[in-house]
Every structure is written in C-alpha cells, then in structure tokens.
C-alpha cells in the first residue's frame, strides 16, 4: 500500500528502512538481524539517561523562572538587608553579623529552590510523561539518579552564583555606610558561603525526593515549607530544652552547623556532623523516592 497524500514523507522512511536493512530470506531472520544492529547502536546507558534528563530540565520554562526568582530574592534581600542594617548602624554596634545580613534572603530563597526541586520530581507524574520515560529507561533507578544528578548540576551553580552575588552586592553596601564587614579571606567566611550553597542545593534535592515520592507538587511543597520553615520554629519554641538533642538533626538545624541559617534549639552539631546529617536527609528523600518509583506501577 502506498501513501498517495504524502509521498515525500513516506519515501524518506522507506529509503532509510532499506538502507539500514540487510537482505534476508525470511522475515524472522531479517527481524533478528535488525534487532542486533539496532541494539548495538542504540544501547541505553546511564550517560545517555543524563543527557535526556538535562534536555528535559533545560527545555521547560519553570526551571529558569525558578532559578531567576531564587537569584532575585537572594540578591535583592542582600541589598535590602545591607541598606537597613547600615542605616541603623550609625547609632551603635551592629547586632547581627554581616554574613547573616547579606544572606537574609536565604530563608525565603530556600523555599523557591525547594519548590523547584519538588516540581522537578513531580511534574512527569502530573503530565504522565513518566510512562514514556519509564518505557525509554526501564531500569528505573537510573532515572532517579540521572534526575537527581542533573538537578544538582543546575542548582548547585545557581546557588553558588546567588550566594556569592548576595555577598558581592551586600558587603560593599555595608562597607560604604561604615558598618562592619567581613572579607572572603576571614576565617570561616568562605566555608559559610559555600556551605550555604550546599544547604540550598540539599533542600532542592529533598524537595525533588518528596515530589517524586508523593507524585505531586502540593504535598512536596507543603513538606518543604513545613520541614524547613514551620517545624523548626514550632518545635524549637514548644518543646523543652531537653529535646534540643533531637532538634539539631532537623535539616535546617544541621545546616546551621556550617552556615549562617538559624536552626532551632540551643545545640549545634559540629560542621562535619552537620554535613553528614544533611546529606543523610538528602539520601533518605531521594532514596525513598527511588524505592517508591521502582516498586509502584507508573
């Protein structure tokens, strides 16, 4: 049967088909030979899965809108915080440390990244694109690891740019108004800034894990807001001091061990322990998402 309505298109297909196909006697032989050639050239590898996830992440607007919103919030609040602090600084000694001042937008910016992560984890379930993805990469663990890797590769640089941008904009404002400043070479400053970028990325990954686990953004974003913003404050003020031992293991509290975010309770882990605890949260969220995706029907 020939296609009379669209001959060019159809012949293009035929040419390709014939060019690639070795002559064979029976259809079965032909089919087997074809499958072997195609399998050899079209192997599914982890690296190819990474490329696919990168194309997906960069080809939706929400990724770049989210990243832009994050930058605006972080850098905008840095300028605002520096100006407010400077105007108050003339009267007496500063109450807050300069690093906290220029990074005061982080508490809001982290929610933007958490939501961005949640969307990265959940959106394929919303659109049902996940069925196509799962057919293309049936070894499902590879999908989860590729998605998390690509998300990290985007969010970590964005976080670093945002954090150092906030520093670069905020510190001169403080300095110009005669307020106390810190330099990158001062002890702990560089670690704090890099640590902050790490914390922001970790929350995005936890959001990603929750999004994939709940298969929807609503629960995941609620989880991020609750876990990062509400829970630490609520528990810190409601629970007796004896609970501080437990509270220091919350993600934000753990991050306060190596950055300037405010945790809950009075106790703070060592920087190394804080990193370990936060990485543990990330692995639990992403791992939980992986187990759920591997086990459940999609």
């Amino acid at each position: 049967m020939t296609n009379q309505t669209n001959p060019t298109v159809h012949s293009a297909f035929d040419d390709r088909a014939h060019a690639e196909r070795p002559a064979a006697d029976s259809p079965a032989v032909m089919s087997a030979a074809l499958t072997r050639t195609r399998v050899a050239t079209h192997k599914q590898t982890f690296a190819r899965g990474l490329v696919s996830e990168w194309i997906k992440l960069r080809s939706v607007k929400s990724t770049w809108i989210g990243a832009g919103a994050f930058g605006v919030v972080l850098v905008g609040f840095a300028a605002l915080g520096a100006l407010l602090t400077s105007s108050a600084a003339g009267a007496g000694p500063q109450m807050t440390d300069p690093l906290s001042t220029v990074l005061m937008g982080a508490n809001l910016a982290v929610l933007v990244l958490g939501a961005l992560g949640a969307l990265a984890g959940a959106r394929e379930f919303g659109s049902r694109m996940i069925t196509t993805t799962t057919v293309a990469v049936p070894r499902r663990w590879k999908v989860v690891v590729a998605k998390a890797t690509v998300l990290t590769a985007v969010i970590l640089p964005v976080s670093l740019i945002g954090v150092f941008g906030a520093y670069a904009l905020g510190m001169p404002i403080l300095g110009a108004h005669g307020a106390t400043t810190v330099a990158l070479t001062d002890p702990g400053v560089l670690t704090s800034l890099v640590g902050m970028a790490g914390y922001l990325t970790a929350i995005a990954l936890i959001g990603f894990g929750l999004g994939m686990l709940f298969r929807g953004t609503t629960g995941a974003i609620a989880g991020i807001i609750g876990g990062v913003l509400i829970l630490p404050m609520l528990l810190g003020s409601l629970l007796p001091d004896s609970w501080d031992v437990v509270l220091q293991f919350l993600p934000t509290s753990a991050a306060s061990a190596f950055t300037v975010v405010a945790g809950s309770g009075g106790m703070v882990l060592s920087a190394a322990a804080g990193v370990v605890v936060l990485v543990g949260w990330v692995l639990a969220a992403v791992g939980g998402a992986g187990v759920s995706y591997v086990r459940r029907d999609v």
């Binding site: 195609r38 399998v39 050899a40 079209h42 939706v60 959106r123 659109s127 694109m129 196509t132 049936p138």
Partner: peptide
C-alpha cells in the same frame, strides 16, 4: 526490564497526551 536498547526493541504509543505541556 532487562532490555539493553529499550526504544530500539519496542516502540510504544499508549497515551499521546502523556507529554509535558510546556516542552
């Protein structure tokens, strides 16, 4: 699940609407 080259072995159309609307 053990396919080495999944898309080259099986082409599937199950739900044409299963695409990301923004892409």
């Amino acid at each position: 699940a053990h396919s080495a080259a999944p898309l080259a072995e099986v082409g599937v159309l199950l739900d044409a609407k299963a695409v990301d609307k923004g892409r």
